[in-house]
Design a protein around this nucleic acid. Sequence first.
DNA 1: TCAATAGTGTCTTTAAGACAATATGTA
DNA 2: TACATATTGTCTTAAAGACACTATTGA
Lengths: 310, 310
Amino acid sequence: MATDETGPSPAGPRAGQDRAGQERSERDQSEQEWLAAYDPRAYTPVAVTVDVVALTLRHGSLHVLLVERAAPPYQGSWALPGGFLRAGEEDLDGAAARELAEETGLLGGSEVEAALSRIYLEQLGTYGAPHRDPRMHVVSVAYLAFAPDLPDPQAGTDAAAAGWYPVADLDLRPSSRPEAAVVPVDTHGGGVGGHSGPLTLAFDHARILADGLDRARAKIEYSPLATAFLPYDFTIPDLRAVYEAVWDEKLHPGNFHRKVLSVPGFVESTGTTTERGGARGGPRARTYHAGDAQLLHPALLRPAREDEIR
Amino acid sequence: MATDETGPSPAGPRAGQDRAGQERSERDQSEQEWLAAYDPRAYTPVAVTVDVVALTLRHGSLHVLLVERAAPPYQGSWALPGGFLRAGEEDLDGAAARELAEETGLLGGSEVEAALSRIYLEQLGTYGAPHRDPRMHVVSVAYLAFAPDLPDPQAGTDAAAAGWYPVADLDLRPSSRPEAAVVPVDTHGGGVGGHSGPLTLAFDHARILADGLDRARAKIEYSPLATAFLPYDFTIPDLRAVYEAVWDEKLHPGNFHRKVLSVPGFVESTGTTTERGGARGGPRARTYHAGDAQLLHPALLRPAREDEIR
DNA sequence: TCAATAGTGTCTTTAAGACAATATGTA
DNA sequence: TACATATTGTCTTAAAGACACTATTGA
């Protein structure tokens, strides 16, 4: 093991201050020699995790995938699925996809496999306040996922339980979104299903989830990704239900219908209709699948809310 | 020092695989005991850096802040300013602000201080391919900065040189945007000033810069942040010059003027005009400063480019 | 039969863009 | 004087939203 002197930057509270300041003393070495002498362990460690805000539609309302933490810190609390990046083995996107599949038991089974392959995943943001995790400085790269309605997940190895949780039931007020870790409270009993009152999430996951919801609401304005919440074939009213759930706004059925069809490449007709009409009556709807557009021109803008215009 | 057995997850190629799987054996401990026994060094290390895409307007064209690397890897190549996160000491935003000031010598001096305080900083994205840095697995959190015209920077401790570089002179084609590290080539002689041909950047910085430019182009559509490129007081033609430089499009002066004034809260009149007319003639323009709007309603959409509608 | 809903038609208002016109500067 | 440019006016077209209407289906 190399000593601090051969490492490029010594471990300690100010490691990373100026990598090249230390490196400059190595200038006479060739680049190859320098790399060989490099000791990664000489740095003050920072852990990198990947967390996923996975959203889906169940029974017409927006749900988020949560796991119950099986171990400290925040043991017993609900949290976003996630885990440590496998250093040197995978990139961030890969880690997010792995965590999503692994920690929720959404693996194997050909239907689940097909559904998983249709999940949309994008990077949301990175959270790195020094004390957001009581163990050490943890930098967490958050991802946002849109999934069609999936079966109930099986808890992975990291979790005591896992499930889809209605977003509306969560407490996402700023007051319950700590930026740094608070004293972990055992919230046993507040689980998916028979819970009482809004849940608060572990770590700064309430803030991450709030950011994810903001991103999702904006994303479906300019991109056709609302279709990622639906099966391959869907109807315009299905699509409208996605927008209504994500935006938490009622939309005008007639205007929405015409607008979707007027955006080039948003949806493509299958030529057929549903087998039956709506549950409460009405004609059969025509079915569509996603078109080839990557962006919506023009966009489907949210109805302006008076309190946001300022 | 704790051994691997007391750490929550052993170091090694698969560290981080299932943090709670290891943690479960600690369940009988209290949370406090568990935390005390926790050894952060037991993980396979990942380094976290912060890099900044700092954009400004000089002589009417868009420039990016670059530093010449003084040490391997990519010694002598140009790169985005950045450096390692100070573990346990700062959050990501703080690290980005520190790097921007520190590594460019934009410190001290009251005018520079005032200009620095007006710099807009936002997180851009995080890049974590396993081999993007030849030394080890480095996860880099990129930031995007908009700055008013600043003086030429002084090279910081990490850099042999630093300067504002015209974005148009850089080679950002996908072919010169490696996701992983390529063999470092010493590109001495390709510097700010007397260079020959487009530069290629170190690491995956060409990709990060390309992403930053995309973000900037989109950002000024929906937010009033184009004003962050200008002094506190500015004219509508000044503002138009920002849009034209960032979008690389000529805009219609009359329509732009009326549109800016019609967006509530975008700009606020100062009641005065410039001292002189334009360099090539024309009346004095009225001056404005940024209003209190956080978002533009309606947005200033880019002219539709035929090849992007697909 | 009744109520709900898919889908279309029409009209108003708002915004975007093309183009013209006028006034005020610089060189 | 010649030319550039800030600013305003006008007109056309596109899009958003309110509302009405018809046809089809489930209960």
